[in-house]
Computed example of a mutant assay.
Amino acid sequence: LFFRPHDVDLVEECNGCIAGTVAASRRVADTRRVELEIGGERQRVEIELPVDHPAAQKSRVAFRPRRWKLFPAA
């Protein structure tokens, strides 16, 4: 699954969303880039959040990509 970090909508309820735990965060200009660990294998994805978003280390964030592509595994 491929999506750009800025092409996501944050959601409160997780019907068909992707949810993960904040593993790392850094500021980039007027946004924050947050790495989330998702799934049982704790794979990482990166999303953009507003600078004032309350996401903290180990907190849960749920999102839904607006645009995405699915590529075969092999």
Rank of each mutant, 00 (worst) to 15 (best):
L1S: 12
F2T: 14
F2E: 12
F3W: 01
F3N: 04
R4L: 06
P5N: 14
D7T: 13
V8W: 00
L10V: 06
V11A: 02
V11Q: 04
E12V: 11
E13L: 13
E13K: 10
C14W: 11
C14Y: 09
N15Q: 15
N15A: 14
C17D: 04
I18D: 05
A19T: 09
T21Y: 05
T21D: 03
V22D: 04
V22P: 04
A24D: 12
A24K: 14
S25P: 02
S25K: 06
R27M: 10
V28L: 07
V28A: 10
V28M: 09
V28F: 12
A29R: 09
T31F: 12
R33Y: 08
V34M: 00
V34C: 01
V34P: 04
E37V: 05
E37C: 02
I38D: 05
I38L: 02
E41N: 15
E41I: 08
Q43K: 13
R44V: 10
R44Y: 07
R44M: 09
R44K: 15
V45A: 02
V45S: 00
I47D: 01
I47Q: 01
I47R: 01
I47E: 02
E48S: 12
L49G: 03
L49R: 02
P50S: 09
V51G: 12
D52N: 08
H53D: 14
H53N: 13
H53Y: 08
P54C: 00
A55H: 06
A56W: 15
A56N: 14
Q57K: 15
Q57C: 05
S59L: 09
S59H: 09
S59V: 05
S59G: 10
R60D: 05
R60K: 13
V61N: 01
A62S: 08
R64G: 00
R64L: 07
R64A: 09
R66D: 14
K69C: 07
L70C: 08
L70D: 08
F71A: 12
F71G: 06
F71E: 12
P72S: 08
A74Q: 13
